[in-house]
Design a binder for these strands. Structure first.
Lengths: 301, 301
DNA sequence: GGACATTATTGCGCCTTTTGCAATAGATAG
DNA sequence: CTATCTATTGCAAAAGGCGCAATAATGTCC
């Protein structure tokens, strides 16, 4: 195949201009480069495209059909290029998002609705799950997660906002089992663990005074991969849970839950956005991230 | 526009193979060239086409639509190239021929019919005229002419066969006006001139013995641009005409005309094929010329 | 978990290709 | 015939492409 697209464009220019020199002037090149472009094209095709003397240039039959068929093709290539370019600059396309289940149901409807109103050209697909999916494999454009460190190495991520967590239990539970004064006391308590089936969870509480971490080996009587259900279990006097504040703020306010071991901090976790390995994020992804960041800025996390 | 068609093909190969290295192996190139091709393409488009780590390569949205739209376009370009190539090798296309009027009506029907039977893929268009048309201007692929020297410099030509000519007159005319014994005698005769309106014709007769040319300034009583009519006028006792043998062979045999000044030769003229300025003739033109040459070889010119 | 293998990328040297300029041959207009 | 414009080609300089090897990243297999 003729390797050089520029040669084809030069050919079209010559056919339009009706001469090598005119085409060269129109394209801002030297005449010799035009001669060579046509000559290369002809020899690569094995066909003469122009019958020419030094004064007249006319398409051969091969050249005429080549011109007629190539013209729309080259135009189409230009259109394809433009449409590809648009992905970087324009707010368009399809956005497949994954977000944590509880976070999604609690906070996402507002920002997403606003985003859809602002950018109707972007098709949104939101998948709520707490599993750490392989972004590449599942073909997500972005995954919001509440986590400590990136799980998947083949992604890039951007921390959005720290998520505060608290140890909580119901007043009735604390009345019945006592209120722990030190992380080591937790060993004797019923701890409610956020965890997927296979994994266990270790609470690494850090001393507010010394900053020293204190790993807690609890006995879990109940484990669940859903924060909302964990909160409801804590409210139902089932034990002590470590949960994001936004999941238990209401219950704390109503007195359904009380904070436990106030001052002892669990490891910092962040609302984080994960992306497939892009060098530079496409406009739609960038804008959606900005929308989430802005919406989350005012949220009590 | 992305200048390199090969880059696009490399892109398609990577998308098909699902990896840079695999594509490189399939194409027989080094992996680095593939990396650079994709990188060039991406930076010329300003869009990332693949999201990639060292282990996974996947199309971005921009890359996917680029792939889907480019694939048929590249295939079309290959098809266009092939169809252009076919003009050189295959016997196809349209052939616009110009030929002398009398020659055409006397000899062309046979060879052309045979040619059309042999090559039904070639569309023939034959224009019979004795005018020397500008091949480029009139867009002929080939012009057969009976002439001495090429009239148009911006053409290439190929001599096919010499055309013998004779001075002829009717027995009755010669009986009435006498038979010339030397070219200089022609001044006193009624000469029938083949000529276009503007031009005059000079008979340059050469001595069969010495080879010396003898320009004849005749007085033309009748001029015509058609050989057949000139022959008929000679038969009708109107004077002496210089005509190709093939136009008067029948009349000579029947005794309607007699040769005059036998041995004195008019300048050699040739049945000649003229072509637009091709470096190498397309197959159809070449084959048609060969057909004419072969058909004419057995003809009594 | 750790060694291994594979991958995409990049720096570097080499070589090919391209480029513009000038010179040449060709062709038309006045 | 002269003058002007044209397409082509030789030439030297510049640019760009090429593969090789080294590097960093990442998934896999034992």
């Amino acid at each position: 195949m003729s390797g050089q697209l520029e040669h084809i464009q030069t050919f079209l220019a010559v056919a339009d201009a009706g001469g090598f020199a005119r085409a060269a002037r129109k394209m801002g090149n030297s005449a010799s480069s035009v001669t060579r472009a046509i000559s290369d094209l002809e020899s690569s095709l094995g066909v003469q495209l122009f019958k020419r003397t030094t004064r007249k240039v006319a398409l051969t039959q091969a050249g005429l059909t080549y011109y007629q068929r190539m013209l729309p093709v080259v135009a189409e290539i230009a259109r394809i290029d433009d449409s590809a370019r648009a992905y970087q600059t324009d707010l368009q396309g399809r956005l497949r998002i994954s977000a944590p289940l509880s976070f999604g149901t609690h906070f996402l409807s507002g920002p997403i609705a606003a985003f859809r109103r602002a950018h109707p050209g972007i098709d949104l697909s939101v998948n709520l799950t707490d599993r750490f999916v392989d972004i590449m494999q599942a073909d997500y454009d972005m995954a919001l997660r509440i986590s400590g460190a990136p799980a998947d190495r083949s992604t890039i991520w951007r921390k959005i906002k720290p998520v505060r967590r608290s140890l909580v239990a119901s007043p009735a539970y604390l009345a019945g089992h006592g209120t722990p004064a030190h992380p080591s006391d937790l060993t004797a308590h019923a701890c409610l663990s956020y965890t997927h089936l296979a994994e266990g969870e270790v609470w690494e509480l850090s001393d507010p005074a010394t900053g020293a971490t204190h790993p807690v080996r609890q006995t879990f009587r109940f484990a669940c991969n859903n924060g909302d259900l964990l909160a409801q279990m804590a409210i139902a006097d089932q034990g002590i849970a470590l949960l994001p504040n936004f999941l238990v703020a209401d219950a704390l306010e109503r007195g359904q839950l009380d904070p436990v071991l106030v001052g002892w901090d669990a490891p910092e976790i962040w609302l984080t956005a994960f992306y497939p390995p892009y060098q530079k994020l496409p406009a739609a992804m960038d804008r959606f991230t900005a929308a989430i960041e802005q919406a989350v800025a005012d949220l009590p996390l």
